[in-house]
C-alpha cells in the first residue's frame, strides 16, 4: 500500500468515527424530539441528553485532537 492509499484509508477511518458519533448524537436528538412531542419527561430527557451528548462530543474532540495532532507533529519532523 503506498502513502496516498494509506492516507486515504486514514481519512476514511476518521470520517467513520465522526459519522458514528454524529449518528449517536442525532439519535439522542430524536429521543428529545419524541419527549417534546409526547410531553414525556422532557426535563429528565433533556438532562440525560445533555450529559450523554456532551460526552460523545468530547470523545469526538479527543479523537480529532489525536488524529490531527499526530499528523501535524509528523509533518513538523
Amino acid at each position: 500500500m503506498n502513502e496516498r492509499q494509506i492516507q486515504f484509508f486514514q481519512y476514511l477511518f476518521v470520517l467513520s468515527f465522526t459519522l458514528f458519533d454524529l449518528a449517536v448524537l442525532s439519535w439522542i436528538g430524536r429521543l428529545i424530539y419524541i419527549a417534546l412531542q409526547l410531553k414525556d419527561t422532557v426535563n429528565g430527557s433533556l438532562g440525560i441528553a445533555i450529559v450523554a451528548g456532551s460526552l460523545f462530543l468530547v470523545l469526538l474532540g479527543v479523537f480529532h485532537y489525536l488524529f490531527w495532532g499526530l499528523k501535524r507533529a509528523k509533518e513538523q519532523v
Binding site: M1, Q5, I6, F9, Q10, F13, V62, Y65, L66, F67, G69, L70, K71, A73, K74, Q76, V77
Partner: peptide, 23 residues
C-alpha cells in the same frame, strides 16, 4: 497496509509522544 493506516503516521517524536500522553 493495516498497520500503516492505524499507526496514524506515528514516528515517536517528542511532540507526538506529548499528544499521545495527553490523550
Amino acid at each position: 497496509g493495516l498497520y500503516g493506516v492505524l499507526s496514524l503516521g506515528w514516528r515517536g517524536t517528542e511532540r507526538q509522544q506529548k499528544i499521545l500522553n495527553r490523550c
